[in-house]
Nucleic acid binder design. Structure first.
Lengths: 234, 234
DNA sequence: CGGCCCGTTGATTACTGTCAACGTGGGTGG
DNA sequence: CCACCCACGTTGACAGTAATCAACGGGCCG
């Protein structure tokens, strides 16, 4: 369970002007000149599978943008059980609480190898003071996270195991036609509030019913309409 | 299930300068002069029990501050089942999505008689442009809602019915020594993802075990340490 | 090649949902 | 003002679902 110190995994200073993700990223609205205001390095970081970006309670000094890969945000209960409260993918921003001087409220752990930008809070604070566009973008990001949290609760914590698994599969396959690699059973369980065994059984059942086809080991395609029926309680 | 048009329940224009809640409210950081920038009326609204403040999908034109009472935010699944995703109390702000031009994402329904301020988005947008203090306060509110949503999921959607009910009771009694009126069994169920029957049984059991004392009908005091043990999975 | 982690499956138990009946308090209408 | 009715909480019996404990097999890494 390696904690990846930022320095060790450092790839080099990001060149935001030429960022391949500009347009969908936090700094989307900025002009070329605005980047001159950045006086602290923005790091481009590689995180291995299972690498921890930050830990709950750690003082928050940076905000992160995910460039590729999947990251989970995890919270824990006193009895040690864990719950995944959000899943992040490309262009998502996380660790926003750092901007308010708070410590991080989750463990952020990479589910796949991931690449991300670490932006010092000071940079964001300063730019957002001078650039209303960035400020609005921040609000939008916050609201997006909140909406995601609410629908996560409504969709993934309500109903039978079958319905919840179906809804999760729909989310994960979201639109794309291609097959996709499914997460580990334990992680799925932590998202849905189920045990790994129940998840495994449920997936097996969906596969037998033809809602789900396993191409290679743990790589699936979905029958979206069929899954949606189950998701909506059929 | 009356929808309460704002005009019908109008109490009069709020006088924010002399607001009894200033200090804890959204406009806390403003100076006296700032209020001169308000050119649209802020309404003080009374909402009866079960009154709907706004409806999911309705175009969002106002942000609300709860002065007293309890309001629930509800989301629905395609099969009609509902889930309460947040509970609001005095000084809480809701409907923030309106500031981004979004329609409301929940039904907001009063669980008790409630009194609240309805602030036109335009007022908040304008003030926040001129007043960094308000801007920061907005970010804080957003983050607070997000943190609440995350802990809601972790605490109230994880573990057995007993543990979840216990955690909810601890939240509702939160600190205060005095007895408090419990919500309806159906609402509790909608918060925890349980049926009203299971909630009723669980509460009866906690009462038999002495963790919970019913003074009057549906008015309780709690044995906090005992409840916390159960909440933490004992 | 061996061990280990992970997913799968079975058997059993515990828990929660469902359906139904009953009592009570509050509100309505006569 | 009283009677009635309805909504809500409670409880019981039962069915269905998920958790638990245990065993097994396959793939991957050392």
């Amino acid at each position: 369970m390696p904690y990846i110190p930022i320095q060790n995994a450092w790839n080099g200073e990001a060149d935001c002007r030429n960022c391949s993700l500009r347009g969908s990223v936090l700094f989307a609205g900025l002009e070329r000149g605005d980047f001159d205001l950045i006086h602290q390095p923005i790091h481009d970081i590689a995180v291995p599978v299972q690498g921890r970006v930050y830990r709950v309670g750690e003082p928050g000094e940076r905000v992160f943008t995910l460039r590729n890969g999947i990251v989970k945000l995890v919270q824990y209960l006193p009895d040690g059980s864990q719950r995944i409260v959000r899943l992040l993918q490309s262009t998502d921003v996380f660790g926003l609480e750092a901007l308010l001087g708070h410590s991080y409220q989750h463990d952020a752990i990479a589910l796949t190898a991931a690449e991300l930008c670490a932006i010092p809070c000071e940079v964001v604070s300063r730019l957002s003071r001078e650039q209303p566009a960035l400020h609005t973008e921040l609000l939008r990001r916050w609201q997006q996270a909140l909406a995601e949290a609410d629908s996560w609760l409504t969709e993934l914590a309500t109903g039978t195991a079958r319905a919840r698994v179906a809804r999760l599969l729909l989310r994960l396959s979201a639109g794309r036609e291609e097959p996709f690699r499914l997460l580990g059973r334990e992680d799925i369980g932590a998202m849905l509030g189920l045990t790994p065994e129940t998840v495994s059984r449920t997936i097996a059942e969906l596969r037998r019913q033809g809602c789900l086809h396993e191409l290679r080991s743990n790589v699936f395609t979905v029958d979206e309409p069929a899954l949606r029926q189950i998701a909506d309680g059929a």
